[in-house]
Design a protein around this nucleic acid. Structure first.
Lengths: 122, 122
DNA sequence: TCATTATTGATAATGATCGATCAATATTAT
DNA sequence: ATAATATTGATCGATCATTATCAATAATGA
């Protein structure tokens, strides 16, 4: 018998997909308990780990903040609202970034996070 | 009697200034012990806290990495080498960044980190 | 339905960072 | 130099996020 399809996995996976923004472990636990009141924190961690290994999920790390997770999507960056603490996805990127890196350094990846006040909080 | 000028504070402050790149607590402890063999970890934390509060130091947070510290300097970003784990300062920024943020969002700050292979490791 | 076993939930354990404690030490004003 | 006391170093403890443990539960194949 291989991997089983449990209610917990379904709830957690769907929840992250439908969130529309990166979610933290605590958010997943709280929202998830709205569907399954006895959902355990260990199951949340285990499911996240599975989805990460399967390449369906990616971590969103905001410095000095808890890790969040979102469905894998094309290259993009994030905006964190300092008022409501929500994290938004921003589309695209700008090619001029590369000009900041001196000769001899090879860039393989980059992360960019904006901080400020979001539309809802303005 | 106010704040005292101790050897520990001098060593730690000078060490960070002269490092030329952001340093971690462990680096400070190790390099510092080269000058004062009995330097304690608590003193390193205390001195960092003092310098942060005094506005002379700023934290450099690389996602998923230990916190580093560097002397306060003009707006700039960082490059982390995935080979040697060193963090480099990059000068300047690009104004095109703002175009990535949708209308209604007010940017107050931003952080940008490049990852890849540095000149020495290439 | 039933047996097998992957998975779960509760919680203990871990690991890491950093603050608190306190006797010993070193700096400063006199 | 000396007294007053800020600071230190060693260590313990608090606080997190995350993992390990294990009996109980539930999904699957027969």
């Amino acid at each position: 018998m291989q991997e089983r399809n449990t209610k917990q996995k379904q709830v957690i996976a769907r929840l992250i997909l439908e969130a529309g923004h990166p979610v933290s472990v605590q958010e997943i636990l709280e929202v998830g308990r709205g569907h399954m009141s006895r959902l355990g924190i260990a199951t949340v961690y285990r499911t996240i780990k599975r989805l990460l290994d399967a390449g369906e999920l990616q971590a969103v790390v905001i410095p000095g903040d808890v890790v969040r997770y979102e469905a894998v999507m094309p290259h993009h960056h994030h905006f964190k609202c300092s008022r409501c603490d929500r994290v938004y996805d921003l589309d695209g990127c700008v090619k001029e970034l590369k000009s900041m890196v001196p000769k001899g350094f090879k860039v393989e990846n980059h992360e960019l996070t904006f901080y400020g006040c979001c539309r809802s909080c303005a």
